[in-house]
Design a protein around this nucleic acid. Structure first.
Lengths: 151, 151
DNA sequence: GTCATGTATGTGCATATACACGTATCTGTC
DNA sequence: GACAGATACGTGTATATGCACATACATGAC
């Protein structure tokens, strides 16, 4: 094998301080725990988040929801499809601007979200358990800071 | 519409303190920025992370890599396939235990990873920029804490 | 040695994610 | 009112993600 272009100490430094890896790993781990908690009501963690974003009083559009959650618009479109098939949300063209599609929670969607919220409290506390109040606040604000400053 | 089972104040409380949503959103935002940085070398952010995990001196197995990164084993299997097709990694059955498959970086893989690491430094600093050193450390340790305590 | 059991891994399915591209609609200018 | 450009959205493709299930191999009891 050729002289390795990769210095082991550089590799371990990068691995240890890579924000991307830390966040992605936490995202998978935490996501999985929420998935387990929501499984009895048949929701995944992002479906829960999506329904939460739709619980606003005024029906939101696809693009607005995507922006709210920092996800790609086309991803939001496709994530809505299974929810619509299950009758949890309703998507209708706006009256004034027929390009715009307004999304509302159906009664079933509201009921399911209510059940999910009851479960949410338990998981959210369990996930946060190893952190002190101060650590948790620091984590939340840190995450918000690096999410927000999308130049 | 029926009496809404969802109290608006509850909804906004949940939305504001949901660890799952905060982390997933940060994950997408940060992942996208790393994707952009690695695009010139043809890697996505998790491909970079995967290659980093494979840069260990002793060739690791599929299960080990999956555990290192906190991802599902089958996800790791499938993420390796495009890298193998591109000749960046090599997967061979272990000599002693033919169930086990050892994964090594090829020379091309090492070279590409070297280029990516050079770009990594810039993005990682840019993403961390809005945080003080202390905030960054708090964020990293907070993420580690909630990733680790997988009962 | 044979067989039950355990372990490392792959596959099929459903869905998530985002990019590139296409379609429908609106809006302002002429 | 016709048309160029802008806007809101969907679709096709590639890959990510994890669960349920299947396969190949190893190991220990007998």
């Amino acid at each position: 094998m050729e002289p390795a272009p990769l210095d082991a100490s550089v590799v371990s430094l990068v691995a240890g301080s890579c924000l991307c890896r830390r966040i992605q790993q936490a995202s998978r781990t935490v996501g999985k725990r929420f998935d387990e908690a929501f499984r009895p009501v048949g929701l995944s963690n992002w479906q829960f988040t999506l329904l939460m974003a739709l619980a606003a009083p005024k029906p939101r559009t696809v693009s607005q929801v995507a922006a709210d959650l920092g996800m790609d618009r086309t991803t939001a479109t496709k994530n809505l499809q299974p929810l619509e098939r299950r009758g949890l949300v309703e998507i209708r063209a706006d009256v004034k601007d027929r390009r715009v599609r307004r999304i509302t929670l159906t009664r079933e969607g509201q009921a399911l979200l209510g059940e999910a919220i009851a479960r949410w409290r338990t998981v959210n506390e369990a996930v946060a358990a190893p952190l002190s109040r101060g650590d948790l606040a620091a984590l939340m604000s840190g995450l918000e800071a690096i999410s927000a400053e999308q130049d």
